[in-house]
């Protein structure tokens, strides 16, 4: 059975391209709504009919009836388990941060490639199955033990300081998603330090030195410039077409 997705997008060309592409992929079934209002109706109707909620919503910000940013909290409230991914032509970091802060899981700036979209979707849908309970956290071949504060990556064992452990825990729990600076800072250092981005930067640097093969060219702990960080565990985020 294919996974149900909802696309909220007013541009017909993009909607058609995505419907064709996802249909060809075969794993997903994409429903399309061209305005915020109809999207809200569709989401409610689906729930009222007792169907499984959408696995993911792809939301364009420039909708004809309202600003997509205003819809983000609504979706988050109505359907907390749905992966909410923003598709927008707005490249401003402030917009990205705002969308992520109000509950979006990811942000793709137009133009994007199909491969990029599929890779992100895949990562998020897999993550939404990760349990949020206490105890050792496991994602892929990464395991974070809460007793010893040790991180295992396959065979490697890395011991972490208390702050590094807390930071790693937040990242691992949200593996694959973009985490805005403020969100990590509030989670690890407390809301009072939400503006001290240099705390985070210094600790990310420390983590990279411990985890990355080349700390100067991180492949796991990646930076979303001007927005935040993303923990990339599998190689599912690389764009196959970018390699000649």
């Amino acid at each position: 059975m294919s996974t149900a997705l909802l696309l909220v997008e007013d541009d017909q060309a993009i909607a058609q391209f995505l419907q064709r592409a996802l249909a060809a992929d075969g794993r997903y079934q994409l429903e399309w709504q061209a305005s915020g209002a109809t999207a809200q109706v569709a989401l409610r109707q689906r729930r009222n009919h007792g169907k499984q909620p959408y696995a993911a919503v792809l939301l364009d910000l420039g909708l004809p009836d309202r600003d997509g940013l205003e819809l983000v909290p609504w979706f988050r409230k109505e359907s907390p388990e749905t992966v909410l991914m923003i598709l927008s032509a707005r490249g401003q970091e402030a917009d990205k941060v705002q969308a992520l802060q109000s509950g979006a899981d990811d942000y793709l700036t137009k133009p994007f490639t199909l491969a990029e979209l599929l890779a992100r979707l895949h990562a998020h849908l897999r993550r939404s199955g990760v349990s949020l309970q206490q105890g050792p956290l496991q994602v892929g071949n990464w395991t974070l033990a809460d007793q010893t504060r040790c991180l295992h990556i396959g065979e490697r064992e890395i011991s972490l300081t208390s702050k590094e452990y807390q930071l790693m825990r937040v990242l691992l729990r949200n593996a694959g998603a973009v985490l805005p600076h403020q969100r990590i800072l509030s989670a690890v250092w407390g809301p009072a330090h939400a503006d001290q981005t240099h705390y985070l930067r210094i600790y990310m640097q420390k983590l990279r030195e411990k985890i990355e093969p080349d700390p100067n060219q991180p492949q796991y702990l990646t930076t979303e410039v001007g927005v935040g960080y993303r923990l990339v565990i599998a190689s599912d985020l690389t764009d196959p077409l970018q390699k000649p």
Binding site: P215, N216, P218
Partner: peptide, 21 residues
């Protein structure tokens, strides 16, 4: 400018990733 404190290594890493290809 949105000035923040940032380690040079992070800036260099970001730029290298952008120009990887």
């Amino acid at each position: 400018l949105k000035k923040e404190w940032v380690p040079l290594t992070e800036i260099v890493g970001n730029a290298r990733r952008e120009r990887q290809a």
